[in-house]
Design a protein around this nucleic acid. Structure first.
Length: 648
DNA sequence: TCACGGAATATTTTT
DNA sequence: TATTCCGTGA
């Protein structure tokens, strides 16, 4: 009740935000439109609860990335004080990991389980594929990455593998049996080795809450206030986890925007938002509709895009930002012509004083920017490309981690395989033999030393592992030793080894914070080190070197730029060919277009090339994206890069 | 059995 | 662009 608050909420927030922040107990759904101050609202509410006397550790703040959780904690701390750092914040996966280690025995799990990151999972799958499928099966068979995707979808969408294949990978239907067999072995092998992949973390945590009421009650009672960010991106399992944890007090606040749900391919159900008021009786719904980002002409257009969506919570965003030009749809005659148009415009803006990092080029898929990248290179415009899988690839980091994994879990076949094949003259076959020999000896990682007919090349590795195994070193000291051993291998394998070596040195610095090897390894899987040059770029802040941003739309979510170009706004590219089969997918593409367009503050351009040959379908693409093209001329200007219409 | 080079292939991404 | 897969020669 009306105490005096330290923070001046009333003057810092608009009425809708204020209502959400002051909301006391019970279920609350906040529908937060693009650019409406969603994060602000969440952080103020955390601060407010703490200020009012709620114990910080009784607040659970679930997000999709660690960065988001961390940022909110920081901001709340700045608003109030250090108490906010004690809020339990993290990702669904991170929280599941902690709970599973604590309650592992209830599920018959060993608490020391290792977490497989995406690369590990692919490695294991690839191994199984080689065992089960004869090598000649070639191009009609999914690659390891695709297999990992398929298996993950089965879990996240709670569907049969067969259905997933029919829906998303019809061209692989002919090898259904083999894929099913690989999946079965994959699931078995994880359990044999005490591995959990990312999906397992959620599945097991869900099972823990659902099948063990006493555990559930205990967890539920510990977290009396639950908050979930980006609720439109939760899948069924995550939504149930939220409901199970909240069950005790029902003090659960979820924040999201159904119009910005763009992760259906990994199981996100934007309908979770629609259903929230059904699951929780007496849900209070608050809409944040004031947009603080875009000028009116852009907002008019984005409202028009989303207005045509089939199913949505109705809301109309408004802004007080005056002025601005209507967005443009620009036709180019070829991909390269599109690239040159974008480059020209960027130079134009830049010459007028707009910094490069105030502009972004967005696209549906990573490869859409290839030609543009070349063109930018020619013009000497420096850029940074965000999105794609790069950050988890970094082979050198994985090499180091594999050495540590083997120490932690000597039956980790994937890691053994990795570190053995780094050695000269050791390929798959030799690695396999050595691995089984090590398992037979059963002396842990040091077992490598004890193998009788041992190839000479393994000697240095054996010595290293024996050394690490016998002496009790700190985690960081282990890292140092491995690094010393690994340096020559690195130098030979990569011509950019100095940069990679810096990454590794930083990895050792991170290791210094850990006392226990298993803790370090778990964190590395859940929170891979941000060492690559690309990751110097952080959300919301300007990239330090003032470079133009190229990004997939998925990676651009939550960010904003003064000027935004959306390229390949072309039927068959965006919306993508695969999505054009059914309505649900088309709707997702529409939301994706909405997310892309709402990134722009001052100017917005859609560009599409014509005469694009699509290899997969054999068609020539030339129609502009219908979501955009169908909009009335008074809110969208249609242009062409050619004044003379010599198209053919 | 391994290493290397060329060809084919590619949604979207977080954990 | 960059990664993965396959065929070839040592």
């Amino acid at each position: 009740m009306p105490e005096t608050y330290q923070i001046d909420y009333e003057n810092s927030l608009n009425p809708a935000q204020l209502e959400a922040v002051m909301f006391d107990s019970g279920p609350l759904l906040v529908i937060a439109g693009a650019g409406s101050g969603k994060t602000r609202t969440l952080t103020y509410r955390v601060a407010r609860l703490v200020e009012q006397g709620v114990a910080p550790y009784e607040i659970l703040l679930l997000t999709f990335t660690r960065k988001a959780a961390f940022e909110m904690q920081q901001r709340a701390t700045m608003l109030l004080d250090a108490r906010c750092q004690k809020v339990t914040g993290g990702t669904f996966h991170g929280f599941a990991n902690i709970m599973l280690r604590r309650y592992a025995e209830h599920l018959g799990l060993k608490p020391g389980f290792a977490i497989l990151d995406r690369g590990d999972a692919e490695g294991l799958i690839s191994m199984i594929r080689k065992e089960l499928v004869p090598p000649g099966t070639g191009s009609g068979f999914p690659r390891k990455g695709t297999l990992a995707n398929i298996f993950s979808r089965v879990v996240n969408r709670v569907e049969d593998l067969e259905d997933i294949l029919y829906d998303d990978y019809p061209h692989f239907i002919s090898v259904l049996d083999e894929i099913v067999a690989i999946n079965k072995t994959y699931q078995q092998r994880k359990m044999e080795h005490n591995f959990l992949d990312y999906d397992d973390l959620l599945v097991f945590f869900h099972a823990l809450l659902k099948n063990h009421p006493e555990v559930r009650q205990h967890i539920s009672a510990s977290y009396r206030y639950v908050m979930v960010d980006e609720y439109q991106d939760t899948n069924l399992i995550q939504a149930e986890i939220v409901a199970l944890i909240a069950n005790q007090d029902n003090n659960v606040m979820v924040v999201g925007d159904d119009a910005q749900s763009i992760y259906a391919f990994r199981g996100a159900q934007f309908k979770n938002i629609m259903k929230f008021p059904e699951v929780f009786a007496d849900t209070r719904i608050i809409r944040l509709e004031e947009n603080y980002r875009s000028v009116q002409p852009i907002l008019t257009l984005t409202n028009a895009i989303i207005e045509r969506a089939k199913e949505k919570f109705t809301k109309t965003l408004f802004t007080n930002r005056e002025g601005g030009q209507p967005p443009a749809l620009v036709r180019a005659r070829s991909e390269n012509s599109q690239s040159r148009f974008v480059v020209e415009k960027i130079l134009e803006f830049h010459n007028q004083g707009l910094a490069l990092d105030e502009m972004a080029v967005l696209f549906r898929s990573g490869f859409h920017s290839f030609d543009l990248e070349i063109e930018l290179g020619k013009q000497g415009i420096s850029f940074i490309k965000v999105g794609g899988f790069k950050f988890m690839e970094s082979a050198h980091i994985k090499d180091i981690l594999a050495h540590l994994r083997v120490l932690d879990n000597p039956s980790d076949r994937v890691s053994w395989y990795r570190i053995l094949t780094l050695l000269k003259k050791i390929g798959p076959k030799s690695a396999e033999k050595l691995y089984s020999a090590i398992q037979t000896i059963n002396e842990g990682a040091a077992g490598l030393l004890a193998i009788k007919p041992k190839p000479v090349q393994t000697k240095p590795l054996a010595a290293l592992l024996f050394d690490l195994n016998s002496q009790s070193k700190t985690v960081a000291a282990m890292g140092e030793a491995i690094l010393e051993y690994y340096a020559p291998i690195l130098r030979e394998a990569y011509d950019d080894h100095p940069r990679r070596m810096k990454d590794l040195e930083q990895l050792v610095t991170i290791m210094d914070r850990y006392n226990e090897l298993p803790d370090f390894l778990a964190d590395m899987a859940l929170e891979p080190p941000n060492t690559s040059r690309d990751n110097t770029f952080t959300e919301g802040s300007h990239n330090p070197e003032n470079r133009l941003v190229l990004s997939t739309i998925h990676s651009a979510k939550g960010l904003e730029w003064k000027t935004v170009f959306i390229i390949f706004a072309l039927e068959g590219r965006f919306p993508s060919m695969q999505s054009m089969r059914d309505d649900e997918n088309i709707e997702e593409e529409r939301r994706l277009m909405y997310v892309a367009a709402t990134r722009a503050k001052d100017s917005l351009f859609f560009v599409y090339p014509t005469h694009i040959y699509d290899r997969a379908s054999g068609q020539i693409l030339f129609e502009p994206a219908n979501f955009i093209d169908s909009l009335p001329d008074d809110i969208l200007v249609k242009e062409s890069t050619e004044t003379t219409e010599d198209w053919w």
